[in-house]
Design a protein around this nucleic acid. Structure first.
Lengths: 193, 193
DNA sequence: TTATTTATTAAACAAATGATTAAAACACTT
DNA sequence: AAGTGTTTTAATCATTTGTTTAATAAATAA
């Protein structure tokens, strides 16, 4: 399923009639299966977040690859994913603001990220002095910010830089190579400057 | 005016009755002044974006300060602004996705950013080899991403890092000092690696 | 004052919308 | 074939919601 309309218009902006039509089923059937619009959206949000985060779980927990290589994989995969589905982040973050922590807990994204082999490697290298002693959350904010923010802000950025969709996508492809370099530069920065 | 409800729930999720009540005026009066919900929101979005971008215009066009110092000011001011009004970015970006380029043009944000003294300095220093030869849009994406993304994604980040609101705010204060250092590190990165 | 425009309100309207109902169609078992 | 439970649908309901109307109050002009 694509949930295209949901992603674009969000919970309040999406009509159950449109969802039913898009799915090719009767409106009453939608309620027969999901009981209410809210429960339907709970499922859509959950599924979407789950697939968004789980898509990286394998690479995250590979104990054969370096931290650096994991960053490269993560950046590359997410940029490809977001190029194909640019509406997902804004959808997730908008819906999440309404039902705050409930959904996040259900997915177990905290365990997925914070207890990953990736995080273990990060903390080890930080303790060993190989990279900057930087709170993991700053690292996540920077990395995800550099990856996700351009897609969230694409309307304004495309207008700002006179970028048609194709040029914007080209730029995102460039970022696949650049972001890992920038991350490395950040991790070599002395925080006590 | 605060537009609090609008910022939290967006166009589709906000009821005109609630806006009227919050403003302490009669519902019919709202239409008497603004003619329709859509036109009311056009004004709110426009005003909000204008204040968001214009708030930085002065510092941006100061020809007495260095590029580095401008980055520091920008980061610090925006983090303070977003700490006070964390709902603004998601509101702007959500509404912007519906009415794509129309609004952006009205504000003249393109002229404000791209023809600023700040940008001139950036391009000069890039040409002089003092900083990396990096497309200005990458620079903007990175800087704004590092500043704004944490606020947009705060629900998930706070849960991920076990951060109560106060700790989250502390972390944002830390970023005031860090982001300029990270930006500098990025601008010293050789892109042809 | 009186007239006229402007601001404000309570009430109502029409369309949209999430949900339900009751009946029909289908699948499966005995 | 008859019985039973499940799936699907057209029609309907009850609210919600953006907007309008018609009347009143307040301000302004004559």
């Amino acid at each position: 399923m694509q949930h295209a309309r949901c992603f674009q218009k969000g919970f309040a902006g999406t009509r159950t009639r449109d969802i039913a039509e898009e799915a090719g089923i009767n409106l009453a059937l939608l309620n027969y299966y999901f009981r209410s619009k809210e429960k339907l959206f709970d499922i859509i949000v959950l599924e979407t977040m789950q697939s968004f985060f789980n898509s990286m779980a394998d690479a995250f927990n590979n104990d054969q690859t370096s931290l650096e290589s994991k960053v490269e994989t993560l950046v590359s995969n997410y940029i490809d994913l977001l190029t194909k589905n640019p509406d997902i982040p804004l959808f997730i973050l908008s819906e999440l603001k309404m039902n705050p922590t409930e959904i996040v807990k259900k997915i177990g994204v905290k365990d997925l990220v914070m207890n990953s082999y990736f995080m273990k490697q990060y903390i080890e290298e930080a303790n060993a002095g190989k990279i900057a002693m930087l709170h993991p959350m700053h690292f996540i904010m920077n990395m995800m910010g550099m990856i996700v923010f351009p897609f969230i802000a694409s309307p304004i950025l495309k207008s700002l830089g006179d970028l048609p969709q194709d040029d914007f996508n080209d730029m995102m492809q460039q970022r696949k190579k650049m972001i890992p370099l920038w991350i490395k530069a950040i991790l070599n920065t002395n925080p006590n400057q």
